[in-house]
Simulated scan of single mutants.
Amino acid sequence: MKLALILPLAFVALIGVARAEGADDFREATPAETETFNARMYAGTPGKTAYACFVRRYDAEHLAQHPKQKVASMKLLVSAETFEADEQLHNSFRIGFRYRHRSGDFDSSGSCHHTVLTKDGSEVRLGCGVDCEGGGLGIALSKDDKSAIVRLESIRIWQHKKATEDDDNRTLVAGSDDGIFRLERTDNSECAALAYDRKELAALRHK
């Protein structure tokens, strides 16, 4: 899919998430605000590449308090890369998760093309979308930058590193207990299972 098409789709996906939460009013971030958010996300000014890893394994007490929650654990890898073609920083995401009452590991991934703020300035979000109208999510940070707040309505998912044609019809759909996930920042090596190649795997495992 061409970049010109992906850009508006990613923004539409993010606004769709916002509407599902209560019609928050957003505005696009300025370049300076985007730069500040990226520095918060990657715990410093990102270079040619940068990574941020967030993980949550829900314990029995949490799941007992949220009986309708389908997700038992989730990992989020946010990546940044500066392309030589335009010298611009491009963000992307990958998530891996396990269901509560279903075996197997599942993934989703996509590009993040918009940084937006609520009109009252209370929260900044990175807007991300799965290609070809696969849904999207918004990624914010807690005030202390130690947690990622993931908001989704629905996103296309597939079996971990084993995508098939059957996966085209699989989606993770937000319910009353699956629309917002708070994941804790951790060492990048915790997201090594989400790496695409050996070079990336080595970067995530590097201390």
Rank of each mutant, 00 (worst) to 15 (best):
K2M: 10
L3Q: 11
L5M: 10
L7W: 08
L7F: 12
P8I: 08
A13D: 14
A13R: 02
L14G: 15
G16L: 08
R19S: 12
R19M: 10
R19F: 09
A20C: 05
D25E: 14
T30K: 06
E33Q: 15
T34M: 05
E35R: 14
F37H: 05
N38H: 10
N38I: 01
A39I: 01
A39H: 08
G44K: 08
G44E: 07
T45A: 13
A50K: 04
A52I: 04
A52Q: 03
R56W: 00
R57L: 06
L63R: 03
Q65H: 07
H66A: 11
P67L: 05
Q69W: 00
V71R: 00
A72L: 06
M74C: 03
M74S: 02
K75M: 08
E81T: 07
T82R: 15
A85G: 03
A85D: 12
D86W: 07
D86Q: 08
E87R: 13
L89R: 14
N91L: 12
R94I: 06
I95K: 01
H101Y: 00
S103E: 14
S103Y: 02
G104E: 02
C112E: 10
H113N: 14
T115I: 15
T115V: 15
T115R: 06
G127T: 05
C132K: 13
G135K: 06
G136T: 08
L137H: 04
A148E: 06
A148H: 05
R151F: 08
L152C: 08
E153L: 15
S154Q: 14
R156C: 05
W158M: 07
W158E: 13
W158I: 02
A163R: 15
E165A: 15
E165K: 11
D167K: 03
T171I: 05
V173W: 02
A174Y: 03
A174E: 05
A174V: 06
D177C: 04
D178Q: 03
R182V: 15
L183T: 01
L183W: 00
R185D: 09
R185F: 10
T186N: 09
N188D: 12
S189V: 13
S189P: 01
C191M: 08
A193D: 13
A195R: 03
A195L: 04
Y196T: 10
Y196L: 14
D197M: 02
R198A: 14
K199S: 13
E200H: 05
L201Q: 11
A202W: 03
L204H: 04
H206W: 06
